[in-house]
Amino acid sequence: MDNAILPRNRAADPRMLEKKADWIRLETIRLVEIAKSGHYSSVFSCAEMFAALYYHTLRLKPADPRWPDRDRFLLGKGHAAIGQYPILAELGYFPEDWLDTYTRLGSPLGDHPDMNKVPGCDFSSGSIGHNLSVGVGMALAARLQQRDFLTWVMIGDGELAEGQVWEAAMAAGHYGLSNLIGIVDANGMGLDGNTEDVMNIEPIAAKFESFGWSTNEIDGHDMQAVLAAFDRAQQSDRPHMIVARTKKGKGVGFMETTPYWHLGFLGPADKAVAVAEIQERLDA
């Protein structure tokens, strides 16, 4: 592994990034097969953004995961880590055969990411609602240390029901943290149904704006829109929140319409249907 720095906003073909997103979906299906349980649809909703962040946007140094000037990426919705692990392995943070140990006894890779076990994981998560605050701390650290790294935090729309998110939003606005970028993966569903039915958190963007953030709202599956939003977020003079409207289970037809694939397992026949649908796009 060389000591290369992957620069921020490096050239990437949008079509290639779309294929990466579908590859992430396939890898997620493969790893759930090991655990016999997993969060398929929570990854599927943010797969395009994972691909854009890791293969285009973030400044990274896989050979030195704790490099002080790297951009940080915190996955507040830690249950989507299963989609992050294959990317980190492919970028060289850890051997690809670690993936085959996913969730097995002693594996570094659990359902939720552990920063002390997973190279490339910038902070542990699992308890929803903490990581935007942690990101505020990292953005403050960058300012104190006069470093130019950016801190990105992806949270879920269901996560917005946690009060601590709003404490963090208030603090980021108060401190004027232009080096902090949030992404709400607004897939519209939690475990028990539609977010708006369980606990309505709309209007999301207006709420963040009222806390002093700039915002924009995009289709989180439209790669051109994702790239444009990521670019714009880096230009903001305030903390910036991207509200990405997504579909939970996006990319596999029978998963897109129901919340029930938040956690589950695909039997062989259903798995074959899901894989074939994704593979068809990859082959196109």
């Binding site: 920063m115 902070f123 605050s133 942690v134 701390g137 990292m138 953005a139 650290a141 104190l144 240390q145």
Partner: peptide, 10 residues
């Protein structure tokens, strides 16, 4: 949690 982010950054 902010303190955690600061500590994780040195």
């Amino acid at each position: 949690s902010i303190a955690a982010g600061l500590a994780a950054s040195g």
